Simulated scan of single mutants.
Amino acid sequence: MIRKLSLALSPLALVAASCGQSSPAHSQQAETEQLPFRITELGTFAEPWAMAFLPDGSALITEKAGKLKLWKADRTVVDIAGVPAVDYGGQGGFGDVKPAPDFATSGTVYLTWVEAGLHDTRGAVLGKARLALDGSPRLEGLQVIWKQTPKVTGRGHFSHRIAFSPDWRYLFLSSGERQKFTPAQDLTNNLGKVLRLTLDGKPAPGNPFAAKGGVGAEIWSYGHRNLLGLQFDARGQLWDLEHGPMGGDELNHVEPGRNYGWPLVSDGDHYDGKPIPRNATRPDLAQPAISWNPVIAPGDFIFYHGDRFPGWNGQVLIASFAIGGILRLSIDGEKAKEEARYSLGQRIREIRQGADGAIYVLEDAPEGRLLKLEPMA
C-alpha cells in the first residue's frame, strides 16, 4: 500500500530542530522540511538492525534478537537457517550483514553479532559464511574470523559495522569502546577503534600500528566511542558516524593513524553533567566534520549516488532516532553542513540505497517497518 505521510514532529524532533549551534564544530541545523518523497511499506521486522541488498534485488535483514531474514521483491520474507547464537540484550545482538565483494561467484556473506564470554562478559564478533539459496535459504560453513578484544561486562557500544574498501581488497570494521572510556586511547586492544582487516579477518598489511603486533596491528584509527555508521564516499574516503555522550554526536572523515579524541574531548558532556573539554581545545586531535548538541542519535548513513532525487547526489543521508527520521548533509572538503531534516514519526535505524535509486529505511521498533522512499513525481 502506498501512502503519503504528512509532516509529524515528535517532541524530540522539535527539540532537536529548534536548538542552535554552540561552536563552529556544531551543526548548522536545518529546519525540518515537508517530505519530498512518497512512502511505500514493504514489510515488518522484529527489531531490525541492518540491511544489505543482493544482486537479484532481494535483501538480507538482521533482527537484533538473532534472526536473519531474506526479503524478496515480491514482499515475501523467509527465515535463513544456520545463523549463530547471539547474546541478546541492551544494545547487543545480531548486527551488520554485507555480501562479500565476490558474492556473485562465492555466495559469501559477512555478519557481525555479540558473543557471550566468561563471567558475564561479551563482545562483538565478525563471521563469514556461504549463503545457499537453493531450496531453503541457509548459511553454510559459518566461521568466526575476528573478535573484540578483550570481552568486557555491559551491553553497550558494540558498534560492529562493516565496510569494504573501494578496491574490494580490505574489510573495515567499527569497534565501540563498550562504555569503558579509556580503551579507546589504548593501542593494545581493539575497542574504540576503526579496524582494517583482510577479507579473512587478519590485520591488513600496511596498517599504521602494524609494528605493535597483536590486535594493535588491526587498528586504522582510534579514540572513537560508538560508531554506528561506516561508509566510503565516491572519492574513496572513509567516514564514520558515531554517538557522543550527552551531546556530541559526530561525523568524521577517518584517516589512518589519527586519534579522534574520545574520551579526552567531545562536543558533549558526561551523563552526570561533568564537563568534557571540547574538540576545539585539542587541535592536535582529529576534528569532526560536524557535531550535534543536542544529539541526533544516529543509526546508519549513506552517501546518495543517483539522479532520482535531484540535487542530492554525493550528499549524506543519516538515519536518526532523536528526530525520528532522516537528516541530509552536504560535504565541503573536510566539513559537513546540514541541508534538511525529514521527520518520519519513528526512530530510524537503517538506511540503504537500492539499485533503482530509491531509498530504503528500517524503523527501530519491535515491529519496525521497511519503507521505500521515492520522489513524488
Score class of each variant (00 low, 15 high):
Leu187Glu: 02
Val144Cys: 10
Ser175Glu: 14
Lys151Tyr: 15
Arg169Ser: 12
Ser175Asn: 07
Ala184Val: 02
Arg161Leu: 09
Pro166Asp: 10
Ala204Cys: 08
Val144Tyr: 09
Gly156Asp: 13
Phe158Thr: 09
Arg169Met: 07
Pro150Thr: 10
Leu191Ile: 02
Val215Phe: 00
Thr153His: 15
Phe209Val: 01
Gln143Trp: 08
Pro205Ser: 11
Arg196His: 02
Arg161Tyr: 12
His157Val: 12
Glu218Gly: 04
Thr182Leu: 12
Val152Trp: 13
Ser165Glu: 14
Arg161Gly: 11
Val152Asp: 12
Ile145Leu: 10
Asn189Leu: 06
Ala211Glu: 09
Asn190Glu: 03
Ala217Met: 02
Pro203Val: 03
His160Val: 12
Gln143Met: 05
Phe158Lys: 08
Lys151Ser: 13
Ala211Pro: 05
Gly206Lys: 09
Leu171Trp: 14
Pro166Thr: 09
Leu142Tyr: 13
Val215Met: 03
Gln143Glu: 14
Phe209Ser: 00
Thr153Gln: 13
Gly176Glu: 15
Gly192Glu: 05
Val152Thr: 15
Trp146Gly: 01
Arg169Trp: 05
Val194Asn: 08
Thr198Ala: 01
Gly201Trp: 05
Phe158Pro: 11
Pro203Ala: 01
Gln185Gly: 08
Gly201Thr: 04
His157Ile: 07
Pro183Gly: 11
Leu173Asn: 13
Leu173Arg: 06
Leu199Glu: 01
Thr149Asp: 15
Leu197Lys: 05
Lys212Asn: 07
Pro183Ile: 11
Trp146Arg: 06
Pro183Phe: 13
Pro166Asn: 04
Glu218Cys: 02
Gln148Cys: 10
Phe164Tyr: 09
Pro150Phe: 07
Ile162Arg: 13
Pro203Glu: 02
Arg178Cys: 06
Gly213Val: 01
Gly176Arg: 07
Ile145Lys: 06
Pro183Met: 15
Thr153Tyr: 10
Asn189Gly: 03
Thr149Gln: 15
Leu197Ser: 03
Ser159Val: 08
Leu171Gln: 13
Pro203Asp: 02
Asn190Asp: 08
Gly206Tyr: 05
Gly176Cys: 08
Thr198Asn: 04
Ala184Gln: 03
Thr198Pro: 04
Leu187Ala: 04
Asn190Val: 04
Phe164Lys: 12
Lys212Leu: 10
Leu173Trp: 08
Arg196Trp: 06
Ala163Val: 10
Ser159Glu: 14
Pro203Cys: 00
Thr188Glu: 06
Gly201Glu: 00
Leu142Val: 11
Val144Ala: 10
Leu191Pro: 04
Leu197Tyr: 01
Arg155Gln: 14
Asn207Gln: 07
Leu197Val: 04
His157Cys: 06
Gly214Ala: 05
Asn190Ile: 06
Leu171Phe: 14
Lys193Ala: 01
Phe158Gly: 09
Gln185Arg: 15
Gly176Ser: 07
Gly213Trp: 01
Leu187Ser: 05
Arg155Glu: 15
Leu191Asp: 09
Gln143His: 11
Asp167Cys: 09
Gln143Ile: 14
Pro208Glu: 00
Lys151Phe: 15
Gly213Ser: 04
Phe181Gly: 00
Ala211Lys: 14
Lys147Cys: 11
Arg178Phe: 03
Trp168Pro: 01
Lys180Gln: 12
His160Ser: 14
Ala204Val: 07
Tyr170Met: 10
Ala217Phe: 03
Ile219His: 00
Lys180Cys: 02
Thr149Lys: 14
Thr182Lys: 10
Pro150Gly: 09
Asn207Tyr: 03
Ser159Leu: 09
Gly213Arg: 03
Ala210Pro: 00
Pro166Gln: 05
Gly214Thr: 00
Leu142Ser: 11
